[in-house]
């Protein structure tokens, strides 16, 4: 067994210090630290259920070694909204985009990453960017509706702030 090393991760605005061996994935480290909204689906980057934002970009936590995330900003689905729900969360709820919900945290993260890059994504862009997140319940139709709806809400909010 490799010896453990203390690392500090910044997750959802909190700092957590944890001792991990070098082979510990970010998925395991986050779940062990109580961030269980990061879901384990395949542990090999096929399904996207464990996606988190690292410095704003969606990354599969199962393919990331925990120590490589030191000093970077990590956001999980539970960290998306601050005092109120994030528009993506509201839209997923209102549009019926959630069934069993196990893929939902990863989809929210992937959608957040997409909208940061492309605030008004085309259908093709949306399909491509969300294709790393498998969902077995919804058939994706309502997920697309929700992401489009959130993009509209966020654009309106931006306009309001301008």
């Amino acid at each position: 067994m490799a010896s453990d090393r203390a690392i500090t991760l910044r997750v959802n605005g909190r700092s957590i210090t944890t001792a991990v061996p070098a082979h510990r994935t970010l998925l395991e480290a986050l779940r062990d630290a109580g961030f269980v909204d990061v879901k384990r689906g395949c542990e090999k980057g096929d399904c996207g259920a464990c996606a988190v934002l690292i410095d704003g970009v969606a990354i599969d936590a199962c393919l990331t070694l925990a120590w490589t995330a030191e000093g970077r900003t990590i956001v999980t689905a539970a960290g998306l909204g601050k005092d109120e729900l994030h528009p993506l969360q509201t839209s997923f709820i209102e549009k019926g985009a959630i069934q069993c919900g196990y893929c939902t945290p990863g989809l929210l993260i992937a959608a957040h990453s997409l909208l940061a890059m492309s605030p008004d994504p085309s259908e093709d862009e949306m399909r491509f960017e969300l294709s790393g997140n498998l969902c077995r319940c919804t058939g994706y139709s309502k997920v697309f509706e929700a992401v489009k709806d959130a993009a509209t809400k966020m654009a309106a909010r931006e306009a309001h702030h301008d």
Binding site: T76, A77, Q89, T90, F92, I93, I98, T104
Partner: peptide, 9 residues
Amino acid sequence: DAPGKATGK
């Protein structure tokens, strides 16, 4: 069940 699932709770 939707709000709990959307917020990771």
